[in-house]
């Protein structure tokens, strides 16, 4: 089991954002988290990545409790994420963004960087090569020298995924990666996520694009008002009455 959530609850000053949410993610599995806006999906990501601490409940990653770990430590343990509103280092180049993503997998200390020791130069070289591979993987290899902030929207989304992958995660959290993408871009994204799965990584995907979710997810978790109302394979979820009422029903308004 890659990730296990048990009765996770998060309250903001008396208001419950999440109540008793629990599910599991197995190695190499793509789990979709869906639900209407405000259902607590992003809060869930913030809890898993240590940005917020749960009010109660357990979050276990590879047999280790994540509660009380700082975000950077959790990234080091092997969980990486992207953001709903893209958060790249805009003044750095695409390649540098990815290299920063590999920070926790690098070793060079202050003085090694200053004196450019042989080990440091070798490490830089290796990391740059790997970063280029990742840029190629997400399909923006030719943009490595462009400033991240100057890239078009779709490429920024891909760059963010590459940056997250640079930390060599076993679990990748994608927060609405298809938001603002057109149909062909979404198709490319679908292929990319499948590729990431083939690399043996588990993925949790928050997404509103139902076509994408239904196509690639092995399992769906449906949240509404901070509670899990259904869980299962996409086919079953599609016909689940509670889901239709809470989520799909809402779309018809």
């Amino acid at each position: 089991m890659t990730l296990l959530l048990e009765q996770v609850t998060k309250q903001f000053g008396g208001l419950a954002a999440l109540t008793d949410v629990g599910f599991t993610v197995n190695p190499g599995e793509i789990v979709g988290v869906i639900g209407p806006n405000g259902a607590g999906k992003t809060t869930l990501f913030n809890l898993i990545t240590g940005v917020l601490a749960p009010s109660s409940g357990r979050i276990i990653y590879q047999k280790q409790s994540l509660v009380d770990f700082k975000p950077h430590k959790i990234t080091e343990l092997g969980i990486a994420r992207t953001f709903q509103n893209i958060r790249l280092f805009e003044h750095l180049t695409a390649l540098e963004n990815v290299v920063v993503g590999a920070h926790c997998r690098m070793k060079a200390g202050l003085w090694q960087g200053i004196w450019r020791t042989a080990a440091q130069r070798q490490e830089e070289k290796n990391i740059r090569e790997k970063a280029r591979e990742l840029l190629n993987l997400v399909g923006i290899g030719e943009d490595e020298l462009s400033l991240a902030g100057a890239l078009p929207y779709g490429k920024q989304r891909r760059l963010e995924i590459a940056r997250a992958l640079a930390s060599q995660p076993d679990l990748l959290l994608l927060d609405e990666p298809a938001a603002g993408m057109n149909e062909s871009e979404t198709d490319d994204l679908q292929i990319l996520i499948k590729k990431i799965q083939e690399l043996g990584k588990a993925v949790i995907l928050i997404e509103h694009d139902m076509g994408l979710v239904m196509n690639i997810c092995d399992k769906l978790v449906v949240l509404n008002f901070g509670k899990k109302i259904a869980e299962g394979i996409p086919k079953i979820i599609q016909d689940h009455p509670a889901v239709i009422e809470a989520y799909l029903g809402k779309e018809e308004d």
């Binding site: 950077h72 958060r87 790249l88 280092f89 750095l92 920063v100 920070h103 926790c104 202050l110 930390s167």
Partner: peptide, 29 residues
């Protein structure tokens, strides 16, 4: 100059650009 082109310098630059994103990217901000 050497610092700014090293692993630490990049971490510094990332923190300056977006502290939260840097933290989540695995940097002990």
């Amino acid at each position: 100059l050497r610092l700014s082109s090293s692993r630490l310098g990049r971490a510094f630059a990332a923190i300056k650009a977006d502290e939260h994103a840097a933290e989540v990217s695995g940097i002990d901000t």
